[in-house]
Amino acid sequence: MMRMRRTLGGPAAAAAIMSLIVAPAFAQRPAGHYAAGRAVYRKWCAPCHDPGITHPGTHALMTKYKGVKSGVLLEWTDLPASTVKYMVRHGILLMPPFRKTEITDQELDALARFLSRNTPGGR
């Protein structure tokens, strides 16, 4: 019943460094494959996570990773779909979780596919 909120620890930092070495594997998908996920991103994530410090999620991640990796989720190459799903349903620090009436499981799948598109083996 307890929902403990966690910060991403060592493994994420290690993955961040890995991502500098491993070239991003841009998945070859037909145009439109990510449209649904992108739409969910635009509606629910972009206000806090689009590029630039006027987006508090981005600013927080920039501050956290201090240039080791980008603060912009869209640019991440070490963001597995499972992490996207976990964050959306658990929240972290000031980011609250999102209910299924806001982002359905199906929409979350699409979002996770979209945000993990540049992550090797990210599914």
Binding site: P56, G57, H59, A60, M95
Partner: peptide, 21 residues
């Protein structure tokens, strides 16, 4: 409308200890 106000208490270079709400 915006969500920019969520910078209150969030991690920034000027606030290394973000709050939980």
């Amino acid at each position: 409308p915006s969500l920019r106000i969520f910078s209150i208490g969030a991690r920034t270079p000027w606030n290394p200890t973000p709050s939980h709400g």
